[in-house]
Each structure stands twice: as C-alpha cells, then as structure tokens.
Amino acid sequence: MRARASLAVSIVAIVALALTACAGVTDAAPSPHPILASELPSDLTARGVLLAAVLLADGDVEQAVADGLVTPAEVDEAIRAIEADELDVWAQRAETELAED
C-alpha cells in the first residue's frame, strides 16, 4: 500500500518535472522574425527594400533599377513584403542597421 502511494507520488513528480521542462521550452523567448535575423544576399538590403517600396508607390522603379538605386531583388522583395504586410519588419531592420552605423 505504502509502496503504491510512493509510486504514485513519483509518477506525479516526474510528470510535473516533464511539464515544467516543456513549459520552459515554450516560454523561451520567441525567435525573431526571419527578416530581422536572416543574413541577406548581397543584392538585398533593408534600406533598398524600403526605397523600392517608396518607388513602387510613387516613382519610376525601372529608372531606379537602371540607375542602380535599387536592385531587382529589392523590388521583388518590396512587392512581396507589401503583400505579406511585412514592410514594417523591413523598416524595423533598417532602423536597427541605421542605429548600428
């Protein structure tokens, strides 16, 4: 009888430990947005994406690409980011990079 009680206590303790461990995992700091964390290819900058977005909304992208002001990759990413509502994340990255300079 006593052995059973002790076994039950042990199981409860193990389960509690396991739950705590799991909770620890889920409570871990959320990983940053991929846009903020990922290493960018050489033809893509946060600043360029924002410039491309500005030009898409109010400028001549073709000329900007021809002038080397933005790259085709930045134009593509700006379009994707507008659609995915992630332009503000690029702005966040640009802000961070600007502060680090």
Binding site: R47, L50, L51, A53, V54, L55, A57, D58, G59, D60, V61, Q63, A64, D67, G68, L69, I82, D85, L87, D88, A91, A94, E95, L98, A99
Partner: peptide
C-alpha cells in the same frame, strides 16, 4: 509614401532614405 503603405518610419530613417542621391530623379 511609407505612411501610405502602412509603415511608420522614424525621422532618422526617413532622412536616411531621402538622402539617397539619385532618389529625386526616380521619384
């Protein structure tokens, strides 16, 4: 233009972007 796309940028960032030399031609 950024605001119209729903982006709130700091004054520093706007200044930085607007400071791009060739931007004027492409706008």
């Amino acid at each position: 233009a950024l605001a119209s796309l729903g982006v709130e940028a700091s004054d520093e960032l706007v200044d930085d972007l607007a400071g791009e030399e060739m931007l004027d031609d492409a706008l």
